[in-house]
Design a protein around this nucleic acid. Structure first.
Lengths: 324, 324
DNA sequence: CTTCGTTATGGAGTCGTTTACATATGTTCA
DNA sequence: TGAACATATGTAAACGACTCCATAACGAAG
């Protein structure tokens, strides 16, 4: 592929002149501009972004690490982040960690090697790896260290809201199906839910799912679902797991919401598609994604911002799996 | 950040020796190896992948362009592609085209500038832009030119299978809800379905959706859904749209599958979560993704492979929205 | 007529790698 | 003993960009 030297030669000008033309920095006569542009098109020249990044020390690239891009929550995040990054002239380097600390750590090296301008890591499982990183990092849904900003929804309060709603709907014998213990976000939801229950002196039965989002969720968790006993309300750690639970209960002939009321978490697109549609807690994904990338770009631009937790508001989305 | 010169100096050796150590090419004494490794860790040195790529002319990076990463079908593809790319030592540069030709074209320039080793583009909307590209390209679900390999499911046959199944289940008055005309994949499904109907001398009513995957699908397409008249079977262009249709019909009190049988397309994870669970046509996403990336890497490695269409088999997944 | 600012251009050094080549030592084998 | 080879290392020239600096022409201002 042609390089800047080829263009300069073919256009009969110096390299510096071509560079000035490309970057619109410094003087280039109109006459020469036309000549250069013509050659660029003839040779289908695309300036080498790698060479440029080496020199300017600015790759205009952001590393995005998510557990898995097929997870509906994280790919919505990714979509929002891509949108804003693109607007700001940044590109996305995608990494799936698979919730695997080793893969995360390897990708972290890769991102450093590629000199990404900044990193967004969702649900990190490899916190020690970030101790000596000199690239701006924003952590999503996971506290890495007191040097790294964490952005997340207010999961704790979301859990509280979920309890209050079920309680208000008349539930007095509730079950909480919680996610794998290693996820901060779902732990916070649980804590919020249980704390609110304690306030009302209600005892909650706990069932633990061992998988997060999985296509085969139902079969894999059928064991734990069989433990569902007498209850009038269930709070499930996310919408997809809730859908799994609904499916399970319907197969057993349980009427929802008349006999058992159910709540999910996330306000994923499937809530509306389910029957009955799923009452849930909304995470403001749009705002979350936008805020995360904005913070990161501020860090990249060396603006000084408070290193602290940023919690985004969660709220109740009332649908048909709960009574009025 | 430290560079190779710093390492060489600090370790008291030459640059070439450090490079040989890093790449395990040529001789380096064990004694020196230890010394270099120690310095590398002390200075937290990460070799600059950009500089390396400039010289070797191999960025070990693959550009992935999809309509949108939040689309469940394409993010599953992306997940599979990431997995295999990672295994082969490649990284993913993510681009959302939003089905927007201009955005796609701009990203195509960016990918060329970044000297990606290869490009996977899903559902391209900007075919002319690929005429003078000298980077290997695999096109997914879209025919760009006779120089570029296309990979897709056998959508046409999938449409036929769908018709045959509904017919076999007793449907004689069918509606087909088709996707936006500009998508080759859904057009092929329609053609297959309609051709099979013609074979049986059945006339099919057509309804067109104007949106592909959208969170607000139901509201946006309520207009066209109102056109659903008397029928005993509906073939919808994909699962999520089918879920929207089911939701709509249930609200109207239509019993599924007793009164109307429904089929989707994709075999997305939501099929199992719906009630009744959705009969659909499977697209072998795993195989599709794996095959796509394998072909691309073969192209990158200059293996000569047939430039032709690669069609992957689609098959019926029988669930509860159709009778026996 | 000199000085100054604006316009316009190009050469050379730099960014951080890899590799071709030169060099040097030690071992083996005829 | 000396040729051949394996081991070990360093220098310098690429790769493709950007930018500092030098150079030069030109008009305006003093």
């Amino acid at each position: 592929m042609a390089n800047i030297r080829d263009i300069a030669k073919e256009a009969g000008v110096g390299i510096a002149t071509v560079s000035r033309y490309l970057n619109d920095t410094g003087y280039v006569s109109d006459e020469v501009k036309v000549k250069i542009q013509k050659v660029i098109e003839e040779l289908n020249y695309k300036p080498n972004a790698l060479a440029r990044a080496i020199f300017t020390k600015n790759s205009k690239t952001i590393g995005l690490m998510v557990p898995n891009i097929s997870n509906p929550f994280f790919n919505q995040m990714a979509s929002v982040i891509e949108e804003y990054a693109n607007e700001m002239g940044y590109n996305i380097f995608l990494c799936n960690t698979d919730d695997n600390p080793e893969k995360e750590s390897k990708y972290l090296d890769v991102l450093q090697s590629h000199r990404v301008a900044g990193i967004i890591v969702a649900r990190s499982k490899c916190k020690e790896a970030y101790s000596n990183i000199d690239i701006p990092v924003i952590s999503f849904e996971s506290h890495i260290s007191d040097k790294i900003i964490t952005v997340s929804s207010d999961n704790y309060n979301g859990g509280k809201i979920a309890f209050d709603h079920l309680y208000q709907c008349g539930c007095r014998k509730m079950i909480h199906i919680k996610g794998p213990t290693c996820f901060e976000a779902t732990e916070d939801r649980s804590r919020g839910f249980l704390d609110a229950a304690k306030d009302k002196n209600l005892k909650i039965d706990l069932i633990e799912f061992e998988t997060d989002f999985q296509v085969k969720m139902l079969e894999e968790n059928i064991e734990s679902l069989n433990k569902i006993g007498e209850c009038d309300g269930i709070f499930v750690f996310n919408d997809i797991a809730a859908a799994t639970v609904i499916k399970f209960l319907r197969k057993k002939g349980v009427r929802i919401p008349e006999e058992v009321q159910i709540m999910g978490f996330d306000n994923s697109f499937i809530c509306e598609l389910l029957h009955p549609s799923l009452t849930t807690i909304n995470q403001p994904i749009q705002a979350l994604g936008k805020y995360t990338i904005e913070l990161l770009i501020k860090l990249i631009n060396d603006e000084d911002i408070e290193i602290e937790d940023y919690l985004m508001e969660t709220k109740l989305i009332k649908r048909e799996t709960t009574l009025s």
